[in-house]
């Protein structure tokens, strides 16, 4: 009994070290990236002799960056709307029901999330050409939507499985047909899940490089633009763009997480 606490303490210290090493490993590159965006020099690297905000003002003055940002946002919003609509539909069809081929449908639904990005991007490219879909916004939206549907399905199914059967029965009992009870009872119950899934889809789409690269036309999305800029040489402007994107996505992610958690608590 006596040497147990010692053992525990040793373990605890070891675990704490591993944890902090991991945190450093993850955050140091991010911190470096942010810091370099304020460096008053064209070359990335230490030492930093003087600081500037020029790179940031440059970003906001750069029409190309701004329009790309808008383009990426539009793609994210459109693909998310499609994923959410299709995802809810599939989730409702699958959850709590037994029918022949259910497992197969479920497997096929989840598959796009598991296929490596590069493979699905090439597959989409070939398929799009075969169907005669021009590279560009439509193709990218389509690929993002298909890729994101599984996340919507999984999140919505998880929430649906906790909806007490008596809720729907009570609605039916009071005179609601299946459609009305879905709209008035099931959908409101799903709101936290739908919101969470939407934010996740928005971020996934905004962040995607591979599919956007393979299916894009002449207009680049933000990650594709950053990639193009990188090829013409690393400059702190890229750090500034990346930092802004980082702050925006982190803010949205944190807000969404807190919001859905609060909503979950309320119901």
């Amino acid at each position: 009994m006596n040497d147990r606490p010692e053992l525990f303490r040793g373990n605890r210290i070891f675990l704490a070290c591993v944890y902090w090493a991991f945190v450093l490993y993850v955050f140091v590159p991010l911190i470096l990236m942010v810091v370099m965006g304020f460096k008053d020099s064209k070359f990335i690297g230490f030492p930093i002799r003087s600081w500037t905000l020029d790179w940031y003002t440059g970003v906001f003055a750069d029409a190309e960056v701004l329009s790309t940002f808008g383009y990426s946002t539009a793609i994210a919003v459109l693909s998310t709307l499609i994923s959410v609509f299709v995802g809810i539909w599939i989730a409702v069809m699958l959850e709590g029901r037994r029918f022949w081929g259910r497992t197969a449908v479920f497997g096929m639904t989840v598959l796009p999330a598991l296929v490596p990005g590069i493979i699905s991007a090439i597959a989409f490219r070939i398929y799009a050409r075969w169907l005669g879909i021009e590279p560009g916004m439509g193709a990218i939206v389509w690929a993002h939507a298909v890729h994101n549907v599984p996340f919507v399905v999984l999140v919505v199914m998880a929430r649906l499985s906790t909806l007490p059967r008596s809720q729907i029965e009570a609605a039916r009992d009071l005179g609601a047909d299946p459609l009305i009870s879905f709209i008035r009872i099931t959908l409101p119950y799903l709101v936290p899940a739908i919101l969470g899934a939407s934010i996740f889809c928005l971020l996934l789409s905004f962040d995607d490089f591979v599919r956007s690269f393979f299916l894009g036309g002449y207009e680049p999305t933000l990650p594709v633009l950053i990639f193009a800029k990188l090829r013409s040489g690393m400059s702190p402007e890229i750090n500034a763009i990346a930092t802004i994107a980082l702050i925006l996505t982190a803010a949205i992610g944190i807000w969404a997480e807190r919001f859905t958690r609060r909503m979950n608590k309320e119901t």
Partner: peptide, 29 residues
């Protein structure tokens, strides 16, 4: 189906609609 019958039920877990107020719950039917 239940929505066609002039019969109403009080459920064991009450099955009140959590996103509606008391008045909205009562008005639902």
């Amino acid at each position: 189906p239940p929505e066609k019958r002039n019969v109403n039920m009080v459920f064991q877990d009450y099955a009140l609609f959590p996103h509606m107020t008391v008045a909205q719950n009562v008005a639902f039917g």
